[in-house]
Design a protein around this nucleic acid. Structure first.
Length: 481
RNA sequence: CGGGAUGUAGCGCAGCUUGGUAGCGCACUUGCUUCGGGAGCAAGGGGUCGCAGGUUCAAAUCCUGUCAUCCCGACCA
C-alpha cells in the first residue's frame, strides 16, 4: 500500500466516525451530484442521473402494467387554485415559491411553482370527467417540484427535486382505497426487487398524513445510522379535492356524484436511500438493477499483444447479452487505481482480464458487496454473470434486512424508549393509544416521530407507551430524515 | 429560522496571529518507461485568495456586511 492509496481512501470519511460526512463524501466522490450556485439546489450529474433513469424505467413499467398513463401538467399553479383546499394550502403555503412578475409587469394573480400538483390536476379533472364511463382516470406524471426548505441535503431534501406523482379518480370509495393500497404495494415490491431495500409499509398517523388527504400510507426504510427515511407515500384523498374542485360525474343510477381520488409519489430521495442503506467504507454499493454500470471490465497489461482485442470481444458479447457494461481501457491509470474507482462508484461486478486469463480461457470476477473473487471459464460467461448479479441483489437485500432487524427494538415505556434512542438508535416498535397528545409528547421528549402504523400489527403489550392507557395501535417510531 | 464551523488552483490543505510580488500534495497536459490492488522519471499549464464595501502607501491577512456549504436543533419527500 502506497501513501497515495492512504490519501485517496482517506478522502472518504469513515461511516462510524461521521455518517453525514461519509454520505456527502460518497455522493461527491462517486460523481453523482455537485453543488450548484443556487442555494439548496443540486446538479445531478450523468452517473447519478442514470440511477434515476433506471429507477424511472422500472417504476414506469409497473405503472403501465397497472393501467396508468403518463401526462404532463403545468409547472405554474394560480394562487386561487392552490387555496381552494383548506388543509392542503395550510400544509404547503409555508414552503411554496411564488412567481410575482412576468418580465417587468406584475401579475394580476400570483403563481406558485408547483410543490405538488393535486390542485392543477383536479382543476383539469373537473373539466374532463362527466360520466362514470370516464372513470377511472389513472394518470401519472414525471416532473420536478419545488419546496422552499430551510435546510437542504443532496437527494434527501433539496429546493427542487424530481419525482413522479400519480393522480387517480374513481367512481367509488372502495376503488380509490384499493388503488391507494395497490400503488403502495407497487412501491414496496419495487423497493425489494429493484432497490434491494426492505420497507416497513403502513399507515401514517393523522399528524403525519399528507395535507388534504383522508389517509396516507407510507413505506419507511432504515438507514445504517439508525435514522428512518420516508421512501414513498400513497394517499387516499377521499372526496376532499373532488368537492372543492367540483369533480362530478353522472353515475349509472342517474345521480351526480363526486369522484374518489388517490395520489402517490416517490422522488430522487430514493437515491439517498440506496446510498445510506447499502454503502460501505469504500463508497457506493449499487444494486445491479439500478447500477448505471453493472460490470466494469479492467483489462490487465493492456499494451500486451491480444489483451485489448480479447477484452473488446468479451465486452461486445456482454453488451449484446443486455448487460450495462463498461470497458475501462484508459491507459493513464493502473489496474489498482481502476479497482478502487469502480468500487467507489458502487459497480456490482468487476471483470478482470489479463494475459494469464486469456491463456487459460477464463476471466476474473470480483463482487462489490463481499469482495469475493472467482475465476470463471469464458464459456457460459453470460449465464455466470447473470447468476452472480442476482446473487448480489439477494445478498444486498438480506444484509439490509438483517441490519434493520438488528436495529429494531421494542419499548415498553418512555424510559426504555429514550434509552433505545440514546444507545441503540433505529426503529422503535411501541404501542400507542391513538391520541395526538401522546404522539406530540413523544416527539417533544425524544425528537422521534411516528413513522407508521404497520399493516403487520403485533400486539406487544396492552398499554400506551406514553400515557399508559389502553393501546390501539402498534407504531414504528424513529428519528427521521 | 436559532447555535457552531468553514470558504485560498479541479480536490485536499498551508499562509492570516505580527499587512509587503500566492505556496504545497494530489489531479491535469506532453514524452518515455510501467500495468494481476491506488506506478516512475522529466518538462509544463492553471488561482484578481466566495462576493461587496471599508481601513491603509500597501489587504488572502485587519474591520463591516453579504452569499454559500457542512454539523447540531425547530419545520418538511
Amino acid at each position: 500500500m502506497s501513501k497515495n492509496k492512504q490519501e485517496f481512501v482517506a478522502h472518504i470519511t469513515s461511516k462510524e466516525e461521521d455518517f453525514s460526512r461519509w454520505y456527502t463524501d460518497v455522493i461527491l466522490k462517486a460523481d453523482l451530484v455537485d453543488y450548484s450556485p443556487v442555494r439548496g439546489s443540486m446538479v445531478i450529474k450523468p452517473y447519478g442521473y442514470e440511477i434515476w433513469e433506471n429507477i424511472q424505467r422500472e417504476l414506469d413499467q409497473r405503472f403501465k402494467a397497472t393501467g396508468h398513463k403518463n401526462a404532463y401538467f403545468p409547472l405554474f399553479i394560480p394562487e386561487s387554485l392552490l387555496k381552494k383546499e383548506q388543509e392542503h394550502v395550510e400544509g404547503f403555503a409555508p414552503e411554496v415559491a411564488w412567481v410575482t412578475h412576468g418580465g417587468d409587469e406584475e401579475l394580476a394573480e400570483r403563481l406558485v411553482v408547483r410543490p405538488t400538483s393535486e390542485t392543477i390536476i383536479c382543476a383539469m379533472y373537473s373539466k374532463w370527467i362527466q360520466s362514470y364511463r370516464d372513470l377511472p382516470v389513472l394518470y401519472n406524471q414525471w416532473c420536478n417540484v419545488v419546496r422552499w426548505e430551510k435546510t437542504t441535503r443532496p437527494f434527501l431534501r433539496t429546493l427542487e427535486f424530481l419525482w413522479q406523482e400519480g393522480h387517480t379518480a374513481h367512481a367509488t370509495e372502495e376503488e380509490a382505497q384499493e388503488e391507494t393500497l395497490k400503488m403502495l404495494g407497487v412501491y414496496e415490491e419495487f423497493s425489494k426487487n429493484v432497490l434491494a431495500i426492505p420497507m416497513v409499509a403502513g399507515q401514517k398517523t393523522e399528524k403525519e398524513k399528507f395535507a388534504g388527504a383522508l389517509r396516507t400510507y407510507t413505506i419507511e426504510a432504515l438507514m445504517q445510522d439508525g435514522q428512518a427515511l420516508q421512501a414513498g407515500t400513497s394517499h387516499n384523498l377521499g372526496q376532499h379535492f373532488a368537492k372543492v374542485f367540483d369533480i362530478q360525474f353522472l353515475d349509472k343510477d342517474g345521480k351526480q356524484k363526486y369522484v374518489w381520488q388517490s395520489s402517490w409519489g416517490v422522488t430522487t430521495r430514493l437515491i439517498g436511500a440506496l446510498i445510506m442503506v447499502h454503502g460501505d467504507e469504500r463508497g457506493l454499493v449499487l444494486p445491479p438493477k439500478v447500477a448505471p454500470v453493472q460490470v466494469a471490465m479492467v483489462p490487465i497489461a493492456i499494451h500486451k499483444e491480444g489483451v485489448l482485442e480479447k477484452a473488446q470481444e468479451v465486452f461486445e458479447e456482454l453488451k449484446a447479452a443486455g448487460f450495462r457494461v463498461e470497458l475501462d481501457d484508459r491507459d493513464t491509470y493502473s489496474p489498482g487505481w481502476k479497482f478502487n474507482e469502480w468500487e467507489l462508484k458502487g459497480v456490482p461486478l468487476r471483470l478482470e482480464i489479463g494475459p494469464k486469463d486469456i491463456e487459460k480461457n477464463q476471466v476474473v470476477l470480483v463482487r462489490r458487496d463481499n469482495h469475493e473473487k472467482t475465476f470463471v471459464p469464458m464459456e457460459n460467461l453470460v449465464d455466470t454473470i447473470k447468476t452472480m448479479l442476482e446473487g448480489i441483489h439477494e445478498s444486498l437485500y438480506q444484509k439490509a434486512l438483517a441490519m434493520r432487524e438488528a436495529n429494531t427494538h421494542v419499548a415498553q415505556n418512555m424510559e426504555e424508549f429514550k434509552d433505545i434512542l440514546e444507545n441503540k438508535k433505529g426503529f422503535i416498535k411501541a404501542m400507542w393509544c391513538g391520541k395526538r397528545e401522546c404522539e406530540d409528547s413523544i416527539k417533544d421528549q425524544t425528537s422521534a416521530t411516528a413513522r407508521c402504523m404497520p399493516f403487520e400489527q403485533e400486539h406487544l403489550y396492552d398499554h400506551c407507551v406514553c400515557c399508559g392507557e389502553k393501546a390501539k395501535h402498534m407504531v414504528y417510531f424513529a428519528r427521521a430524515y
